[in-house]
């Protein structure tokens, strides 16, 4: 299996754990990720608020580079995924848009390739049976709240691989890895994403709701598939705790980190030590669970 890989800006910076663990998981699964050479930023939340054409052209350049190679594009970041999907649909839906965009990016782009969420690639495309068989160090008994965030499965016209209200892909993945996915109501509610810098107050409130409900549901960790969610829930968790006068202490992990962990990669090699909220309780819990299981024949 070979995919064009569009890491997006976060994976080289704030989302470094996502990058490390993605590469580790791809290696174990035998998924070849061909990083789009000299890819550019997709424009994220800024472009579509400023200029429609720009919001289509920035992702299109990357997609066109992949199309030349005849490859579908795997995208880890939910925000990038959403922008690329929007571009793909706009170009596929209108000859005018296709022509205009091709002219602006100086390349033909006909949207003959697909944009896939990395979550989709590593689960549905790779096959959960294979994932389960490679999980040599299962995450025995770890209670996780699968947090899909807003843009991975919404809006429904762009959501192609899972339900917008109660998605199951990550939940089934946790099951395949030996962990438990708790049932909770805020799987696809927004963390505040794009307002991290400009209206931090809103982010703190929205992310607090997410963390509060994950905690109430009995989760020991939140699993995410988006570097923006990670930033808000992980880096700002202390601030959220201080503002609301509560202790949350919920480690936030990328689904790829848990996959890599279950595949037997060393936690430090896949970024467990790079989080703001201490992730060692997760590693400890998993090891305890495994030992307990080994004791019982």
């Amino acid at each position: 299996m070979k995919y064009a890989y569009y890491p997006g800006c976060s994976l080289d910076s704030t989302g470094i754990e996502y990058q490390l663990s993605t590469k580790a998981v791809a290696g174990t699964l035998g998924v070849e990720l061909w990083e789009i050479p000299e890819w550019n930023c997709c424009g994220a939340s800024a472009a579509h608020n400023t200029d429609r054409l720009l919001s289509l052209a920035l992702p299109a350049r990357n997609l066109a580079l992949a199309e030349k190679e005849g490859l579908d594009v795997a995208v880890p970041c939910a925000a990038c995924y959403s922008r690329m999907k929007a571009t793909e649909k706009a170009v596929r839906g209108s000859e005018d848009v296709r022509e205009k965009i091709s002219e602006i990016i100086e390349m033909e782009y006909g949207a003959s390739n697909r944009t896939l969420a990395l979550l989709d690639v590593f689960t549905n495309q790779a096959g959960l049976e294979q994932v389960a068989s490679l999980a040599t160090k299962p995450l025995q008994g770890l209670k996780t709240a699968c947090y899909y965030g807003c843009l991975m499965v919404k809006p429904p016209r762009l959501a192609e691989f899972d339900d917008p209200e109660d998605p199951q892909t990550m939940d089934r993945l946790m099951d395949a890895l030996g962990a438990e996915a708790v049932s909770w109501p805020y799987k696809t509610e927004c963390c505040g994403a794009g307002f991290a810098s400009s209206r931090t107050d809103i982010v703190l409130q929205m992310s607090y709701e997410v963390l509060r409900l994950a905690k109430t549901a009995g989760a020991e960790a939140v699993v995410t598939a988006c570097p923006l969610c990670m930033l808000n829930l992980d880096m700002r968790q202390k601030e959220i705790e201080a503002k609301n006068g509560v202790a949350i202490d919920l480690p936030i992990l990328y689904f790829t980190e848990l996959m890599a962990l279950a595949f037997g990669h060393k936690p430090a090699a896949i970024g467990f030590n790079k989080h703001f909220v201490d992730t060692t309780p997760v590693v400890r819990k998993v090891e305890q669970g495994r030992r307990a299981k080994e004791v019982q024949p």
């Binding site: 080289d12 704030t14 000299e38 720009l54 289509l56 602006i104 990016i105 790079k274």
Partner: peptide, 28 residues
């Protein structure tokens, strides 16, 4: 998670030209 130096793509002229053409196209 953050670097002092910007990561610059080698072909950033292509991206600048995208911005330039978009400006000339009145928003689409």
């Amino acid at each position: 998670k953050m670097s002092l130096r910007p990561e610059k793509i080698r072909d950033n002229g292509a991206v600048r030209r995208i911005f330039g053409r978009v400006r000339a196209s009145s928003g689409g």
